[in-house]
Structures are given as structure tokens and as C-alpha cells.
Amino acid sequence: MLSKSGRGLSLVRSAILLAVAALVATLFTAPAAQAADGQITGLAGKCVDVAGANNANGTPVQLYDCNGSNAQRWSNSGDGTLRALGKCLDVSGNSTADGALVHLWDCTGGANQRWVVSGANDIVNPQANKCLDVQDRNSANGARLQIWTCSGQSNQKWNAPSSGGGNPSPGGFVVSESQFNQMFPNKNPFYTYGGLNAALSAYPGFTGTGSDTVRKQEAAAFLANVSHETGGLVHVVEQNTANYPHYCDASQPYGCPAGTDKYYGRGPIQLSWNFNYKAAGDALGIDLLNNPDLVQNDSAVAWKTGLWYWNTQSGPGTMTPHNAMVNGAGFGETIRSINGSIECNGGNPGQVQSRIDKYTQFAGILGVETGRNLSC
């Protein structure tokens, strides 16, 4: 039996424990309450904020300490827009350039007001295929928000609660593993479905833009061109070894540090030339100029180089293959962007038809129509 002093100490300990428990409960329930208010948190735990809680057109959108105000409550109306204070998060000037600032504006339904939250916590404007980004990685109050090429850096990562702040990409890649295997029954084991899925975060707008039909058409178009380039995902590297020394452009200031014969075609779209290895590596944050073998040794890296070309390069065409599919230009324009100088305008109709046949087959597997303008 405790003495009076023992009982007194016990009561004090109990009071302390209850106080600590209450404090812990407060600390751990506060974020949930903030999420319920539609806050979008990012760098340094700060919030996406409308400057001065002003809803005038052109009001800057910035990073700021979370305060629970209406200037930090973002809702998803179901149409892909992000709304606060009755207006939309908008890319200034309908720009698709790196560094284009975002602000508040009347909701117009324009593509510069569409946003997708990826599974990797990026908030992407599909028209630009770029990420919502904190300017200069600055975590100070008032740091402006902009769009920038998706890099995976912390200044592009956002916690957007389900009650507001996004239009989450539904269920991942539109091609299932069984459909992928049906498309490529004889594929090289190097080209894994897992590697492709791991690469998708590099370009969240890919097969994440537009209607379900458009998303599936883009997936079928990409995989059809990839199939053509690799013989059905059989070839990881270019087969004509005699060409290997030809892909070093010595006039580039960085030269060919891995060796003059190391920039031959590799991967699903057969990345070649030292300047393309450098450009792709710079975009992906991987040193491919000095380590080109990564494209034939790492499945995810190989798929990322294919997605880099598809989403950012127009080649001999006038638009990227991604834009050709999401803007309705048609499958034929993807051919032009990949190999149009050789195949299009009657250059090699047999090769063009081979690509079209594969696209038609893959679209059928995905249960979607092919759309118009199949040829180039």
C-alpha cells in the first residue's frame, strides 16, 4: 500500500502523462485538420498560398507558412482545375516555357488551368508537361510558384489532400501487365513492365493527359513506335555494329568522353549520338554522356530515354509525339517526329504502314479506336 507521499507522486505522474498525451494528440491531429481544409503543402512544410488573400486576376500564387486561411484552401471541382477564392490556378500567358509563373485567374476551361497530381506527388500541367515548382528552390515566405521541367526535386513535391488540390491520375499506367505481355510476346527480358512503370514518373503527362480514350491512344502509339524500333522489344542495342563509330560528333565542346564508339542506338527508341545522350541525361538527371551503358543495363533508364524523346523532342517533325497524340494531330505525326525525314511523304511507305499496323493492333488490345490521320 502506497504512503500519502507515494500517492501524491503517483497523481503528479498521472497528470504529467495526461498532459503529454494531450499534447501528442494535438500534434498528430493538426495535419489531418489542415488536409481536410484543402491545403497543399510542399517545400519546408509550407502551403500553396494566394498572396494577400486577394482574388483579383493576376494575383501571385506563392509559398507561405500554413495558416488555415481561405487563401490556402484549394478545391478540386472534378474538371482538373485547382480553385481558391473562387478562381483557378493559372499558368501566366498560356505559356509552356520553363519559369512561367502561376497566378490566380478567372476559370476559363483553358489547358493552362488543368492540373494532374501524379503518384510521385508532382502537380503537372499536362499542356506543358511540366511540374508546379518553387522558384529557385526558395523556402522563404513569398517565394513564387512557376512551372518547370519535372526533375523530382523537393521543390516540385506536394502533399495535395484528397479533399482538394488535384485531379489524381486514376490507377497508374493505362496498359496492364497482361496487355503489355500480349503486345510483346517475344520481348527481351531486359524490357520489363516494372522498368516501364518506374520510368513513368519522369514524365507524368505521358498517358495522363486528356480523356481515357486519348490516354490509351497515346500509350498504343508510343508502344507501337517502340515495337517498330526494336523488333518487338527484342533488340536492346543497334544491330549494325559498323555504325557505332559514326555517332560521335566531335564538334561538341564536351566531346565523347566514354569513347568515340559508345553512342550507338540503345533502348526502346534507340537513343544515339553523343549530343542526344547528353541532352537526355541532363533532362533526366543522369550522367549518360559519361555512362551511356546505363541505357542498356538499367531497364528504367532505358524506358526513361524513350519517354524523354517522346515527350520533349520533335525530331524532323513540327511537334513532339506526345503533343501529336494529346492535341489530336494523329498517329501519323508521331511517325514524322521519330523518322519522318526518311519514311514520310512517300519516302518509305512500307515502314510507315508497319507502324500503322502495329498501332492498330495495340489500340485493339486496349479497346480504343485509332483516331484520324494515321499516316504521314
Rank of each mutant, 00 (worst) to 15 (best):
K4M: 07
A15R: 12
A21Q: 07
F28W: 14
A30W: 12
A32H: 08
D37G: 15
I40N: 09
I40M: 15
T41L: 13
T41G: 09
L43Y: 03
A44H: 08
G45H: 08
G45D: 11
K46L: 03
K46D: 01
V50N: 06
G52M: 03
A53E: 13
Q62K: 13
Y64F: 15
D65R: 08
N67S: 11
A71N: 02
W74V: 05
N76R: 08
D79C: 02
D79G: 06
T81F: 01
T81R: 15
L82N: 12
L85W: 01
G86T: 07
C88G: 02
C88T: 02
D90Q: 09
S95G: 12
A97W: 00
A97R: 05
A100C: 06
V102Q: 07
V102H: 04
H103G: 03
C107A: 03
N112G: 04
Q113L: 09
Q113C: 11
W115K: 10
S118D: 14
A120V: 00
I123S: 06
I123F: 04
N129R: 05
D133Q: 08
R137I: 04
R137N: 15
N141L: 01
T149G: 14
T149P: 07
S151H: 13
G152Q: 13
Q153L: 12
S154F: 08
Q156L: 03
K157W: 00
N159D: 14
N159P: 00
S162M: 11
G165C: 05
N167K: 07
N167H: 13
G171F: 09
V175D: 08
V175P: 05
S178L: 11
F190M: 09
L196M: 13
G208K: 07
G208Q: 04
D212P: 06
A224Q: 04
N225S: 08
S227V: 01
T230E: 08
G231A: 09
G255Y: 10
K262Y: 12
Y264C: 02
R266K: 15
L271M: 13
N274P: 02
A280G: 13
L284V: 11
L288S: 03
N290H: 15
P292Y: 05
V295G: 10
V295N: 07
Q296N: 14
D298S: 12
W303I: 07
T312G: 02
M319Q: 14
P321V: 03
M325L: 15
N327L: 14
A329E: 10
F331H: 04
E333H: 14
S341M: 05
I342T: 14
G346T: 11
G346F: 10
G347H: 10
G350R: 05
I365C: 10
G367V: 06
L374Y: 04
